[in-house]
Design a protein around this nucleic acid. Structure first.
Ligand SMILES: [Mg+2]
Ligand SMILES: [Mg+2]
Lengths: 471, 471
DNA sequence: ACTTTAAACATGTTTATGGA
DNA sequence: TCCATAAACATGTTTAAAGT
C-alpha cells in the first residue's frame, strides 16, 4: 500500500505510476488511520507511520513543568502538551546529525567527489529537467527522477533516508539562480522548476558574504558575448516549453531593495553586519546571484546616472521598478522603514470597527491617491519613465512610452522571425489562454497608472498595425 | 530586539515598521546565535529561542535505543539522534490540544460566536485585504493586520500563542475559494493573497464530502445574475490592483482532473472512497469550490455534449483544457494512470548514464513528438479546438480560432470602454512590463502548438486593426 | 571558492474533530 | 452545515558547518 508522501522507494519504474506520489504538495491519507484519540500512544490495530519528513523540531514545554534537573521520565514528557499559554522553554538540544563528514577511503580512492558519482546535486537536477520534453518538473518529480535514475538515491528512498537528499534538492533549487520556479496554474499545485535561461552558464557561485557583486563597465561590455550564449539556452527552453517561456517572461528577481552593497545606498542602511534592525535592506539574499547575463535594454550603459547603479543592473531584472528608486527620496526611506510587511501601514489610519459592515469602513486610500504620492518619484525612478521624461520617447495622451520595453529583450540572434519581447509577452498570454495559463505574478509596487489603450494603440502604430511574435 | 519570525507582538503600529517581520518567507537570524555544538544543552551566554512555529512534530528515535518500558530520562532522550539509518519507531504520542472546546459561558452570553467578535476568520481576512489600497496582502501582512486591528489577536501575538490563529489564517486562505494566491514576482517572495472575484459572494461552503457540486441548467441560467455581481467585484479588485488583475487573469483552477464526481467519469476511477490506489482522480479537493460565478464563454450551454459536463463548467475555468478531456480516450487513461508525478515517464525510456555529458543523452521526445500523440484528442478536448473543428470559426493558416476567447469574459456591464478578455490579458502583460510583472504560470499540459502570429494577425483583422482594453 | 549536509523556519494544502 | 482548531505534511528559502 502506498503511504502518503511515499516516494515510491525502490519500486520498478514501470509500476511507479500506480503508487507513486500524488501531484503537488498535498499527499492525502489514502486510508484514513483510525483517530488516535482515546487511548493515546499506540494501539495494536494501528501502527502510525513515522512522520517528520523534513526535519526534527524542538518541542515546547510548559514552563510550569518540572525542570530538567528533575529528570522527568519519558512518560511524563509524553503527557506534556506541546503548546500552552505559558512561555515555552527549550528543553531539547538540537539533534545534530553526523558531525564528522569525512569521506570514506574507498570513495576517495575512486576519485568520486560524491558517493553517487561525479555530478553535483545541481548538475543532477539540471539533468532531470533537461530530460523532460517540457524542460520542467515539479519538486516531487525531481525526487522521483533521482530515485529512478541514480542507484545511490534509489537505495535511500525510504521516508527517513530520503529526507536528507530531498532536503538537499530543495536547497539547491532555491539557492542557485540556475533554477527558477514558475507557478503552476492552479490552486493546490506545486511550482514548476525550470532552468533559468538568464543565469550565467556553468557554475553559479553562491554569493560570498561580503563581496559586492558590482558590475563594472567591462562586465557590461562582456555581456554581448554572454548574452549570445544565454540566448541559445533561451531558445532551447522555449522549444521545450512549447513557446510558453521566454527569458523575459520568467525572470528571477531579488526580493531585496538591492541597495545593500551599493555605495549610493544610504549609509544608515548599508551596514548590514551591524544593523540590529531587521529592516529589509539589512539582508543579503543569495537568490540574486547570477544575473549578469540577461539582455540589457538599450538605455542601460555604464554611464548611467547613480539612480541606476551598475550593481543592480548586474544582478536582476528587478531593476524594472524596485531597483530604480531614488534612495534619497522620502518615499524610498519610508518604504525602507516600513519594510515589506509595513507596506500597508497607511491602512491603519482607517482603523476598523469590527462590527462595521464593510461598506461603513473608511474607504482606504484609492490606488490613485496612493499613486499620486509616488508619482513624481516614479517618474525618475523607473527607467522607462525617466527616459520618457528626458524626451527620448514620444509622449502622447498620457502614455509613458512603451517602445523601450519592446526592445528590452530584443534578440537579433533569435531563430524566429521577430523577437520583440513585449510582443512575445503578449503571445505567451494569448497562447496560454486555451490551457488556463492565466495567473500572473504581481510586483510589490502597484502597477503604474497608464492609459494602456493609448499605449498599445501607439505601439501598434509603430509596428505597422501588426504585432510580431517570437514563438 | 526583534527575533526572527517575531510578528511584532503587541507593539504600537507606528513602531512596527522598525522591528516588524521581514518580507516573505525568509526571516533571517538578525544576530547569529553562537553555534550550539560543543557543550550541547543550554549555555548561559546563549538562550536559544523556542522554535516550532507551526506545529509540534513527532520525533524519530533509533529503534536500537532503549524501549519505552525502560523509561529513559530526559538526558538520555536528548542525546538521541533524531534520525538514523534504522527504522524509526514512534515514541511520542501526538500532543493533542484542547480536546474540549466548549465555549465559555460569558462568550455565549454575549452571543459572540467567537471570542473576538462576530466575524469569522474568513471575514476578517477579507476585511484585511479590502483595507489595503491594492487589495492584496502577503501572508505575513495578514498576520500583522490581525495583530494590529483585533485585540484578541493582539493579546495573543507571541510566537507560541499566535501559532494557532496563524494556522487558522493559513487554513482559511487555502481552503476557501474566496481567496486566491497570486505569485509574487521575484524569487524569495511569498505570494499575494487577494479576493477571488470569481468566487461566489457570501459564504463559500466547504465542499461536503459526498455532494456532487453539479450545476444543472437552472444554475447556469442563474449565472447572468450572479455574473453581474461578480463583475462589480472584479471592477473593484481591478481598480485596487491598478488594472493588473482581471477575473480572467487570476483564476483558481482545480488540480484535479475534475471527473471524480462526474457520471461520465470512468467507473474504475470514480469510486473515490474505496480506491486504495492513490491516483490523482481518487481525491477530492475543496479548492475547486465556489466557481459557479465566472463568465461563461458563449459556447457553453446546458445542452453541451458530455465531453463538457456541466459539473465542470460549474466549478472552474480549468475547463480550458484539463476539464475537457475525453475520459474514454486511451490518452486520458494513460495520463490518469501515470498521475501527475508520472507525467514524464516517457523520459525513462532514455535512461541516463550518469557520467554521460548531457549531449550524449538520448534526446528526449520533442515537444512536437509528444504533442503529436495528444493532438487528435486535443482537437475535441479543448472547446476552442472543438468549435473550430465544428466549423463555427473561420480557420486560416493554421490558426485554431481565436475569437471565442476574445469573448470568453466579455462583460457588457463593465464600466470601461471595451472589455474583451483576451485584450485585457494582453494589457495586463504589457502593463506589467515596467514593474517586472513577467512570471507566468504554466499548465500541466504543454501549450498547444499554434501559429500565434497568424492567430493574432487574424484577431487584429477582426478588430479594426486595433485592440481595446478594459483597464 | 565550492559542495554536501543539517537545520530552522515560512508558506501553503489538506484532513480530522468537535462545537454551535 | 458551518466554523474553529489542531495537526500532518509538502514545498520553498535561508543560514550554518564541515569537507574538498
Ligand atoms: Mg533558484
Ligand atoms: Mg483559497
Amino acid at each position: 500500500m502506498s503511504m502518503p508522501g511515499d516516494e515510491g522507494a525502490g519500486l520498478l519504474p514501470g509500476v511507479l505510476g500506480l503508487q507513486g506520489p500524488l501531484q503537488g504538495p498535498p499527499q492525502p491519507l489514502p486510508l484514513l488511520p483510525p483517530p488516535l484519540f482515546e487511548g493515546g500512544h499506540e494501539s495494536d490495530d494501528f501502527l502510525p507511520r513515522s512522520r517528520c519528513y523534513t526535519w526534527p523540531m524542538q518541542q515546547f514545554f510548559d514552563s510550569t513543568s518540572p525542570l530538567i534537573s528533575r529528570e522527568p521520565t519519558v512518560a511524563q514528557l509524553l503527557t506534556q502538551p506541546c503548546s500552552s499559554n505559558h512561555l515555552p522553554i527549550l528543553l531539547q538540544t538540537p539533534a545534530k546529525k553526523k558531525r564528522c563528514r569525512k569521506k570514506p577511503a574507498d570513495q576517495l580512492a575512486q576519485k568520486k567527489p560524491n558517493p553517487w558519482g561525479e555530478e553535483s546535486y545541481s548538475d543532477l537536477i539540471a539533468k532531470s529537467l533537461d530530460s523532460t520534453p517540457e524542460g520542467r518538473l515539479k519538486l516531487n518529480e525531481i525526487y522521483q527522477w533521482f530515485s529512478d535514475n541514480i542507484p545511490y538515491f534509489r537505495d535511500r528512498s525510504s521516508q527517513e533516508e530520503a529526507a536528507g537528499w530531498k532536503n538537499s534538492i530543495r536547497h539547491n533549487l532555491s539557492l542557485h539562480s540556475r533554477f527558477m520556479r514558475i507557478q503552476n496554474e492552479g490552486a493546490g499545485k506545486s511550482s514548476w522548476w525550470v532552468i533559468n535561461p538568464d543565469a550565467k552558464p556553468g557554475r553559479n557561485p553562491r554569493r560570498t558574504r561580503d563581496r559586492a557583486a558590482t558590475a563594472d563597465s567591462k562586465t557590461i561590455g562582456n555581456l554581448k558575448e554572454t548574452r549570445r550564449k544565454a540566448r541559445n539556452r533561451v531558445k532551447d527552453i522555449r522549444a521545450m516549453m512549447g513557446g510558453s517561456v521566454s527569458s523575459s517572461q520568467v525572470s528571477i528577481s531579488s526580493h531585496e531593495p538591492l541597495f545593500a552593497d551599493d555605495p549610493n545606498f544610504p549609509p544608515m542602511f548599508r551596514d548590514r553586519a551591524n544593523s540590529a534592525l531587521t529592516n529589509p535592506a539589512s539582508r543579503v539574499s543569495p537568490s540574486m546571484e547570477g544575473f549578469n547575463d540577461f539582455d540589457f535594454p538599450p538605455w542601460v550603459d555604464a554611464s548611467a546616472p547613480p539612480q541606476i547603479p551598475a550593481d543592480i543592473v548586474d544582478r536582476t531584472q528587478e531593476i524594472r521598478l524596485e531597483g530604480c528608486i531614488d534612495a534619497n527620496s522620502p518615499a524610498f526611506r519610508r518604504t525602507l522603514l516600513n519594510g515589506i510587511n509595513g507596506e500597508h501601514k497607511e491602512m491603519k489610519t482607517a482603523k476598523l470597527e469590527l462590527q462595521d459592515p464593510p461598506m461603513m469602513q473608511t474607504a482606504p486610500p484609492s490606488y490613485h491617491e496612493l499613486n499620486a504620492v509616488r508619482s513624481q518619484n516614479q517618474q525618475m525612478q523607473n527607467p522607462l519613465l525617466r527616459n520618457a521624461a528626458l524626451g527620448q520617447l514620444p509622449k502622447q495622451g498620457g502614455s509613458y512610452g512603451f517602445s523601450p520595453y519592446s526592445t528590452w529583450n530584443m534578440s537579433p540572434g533569435m531563430s524566429l522571425p521577430t523577437t520583440q519581447s513585449c510582443a512575445s509577452q503578449q503571445v505567451a498570454s494569448m497562447g496560454s489562454l486555451p490551457v488556463d495559463l492565466e495567473n500572473l505574478t504581481l510586483p510589490d509596487q502597484p502597477l503604474m497608472e497608464m492609459d494602456m489603450e493609448a499605449v498599445l494603440r501607439h505601439e501598434l502604430s509603430q509596428t505597422n498595425n501588426q504585432l510580431n511574435f517570437d514563438i
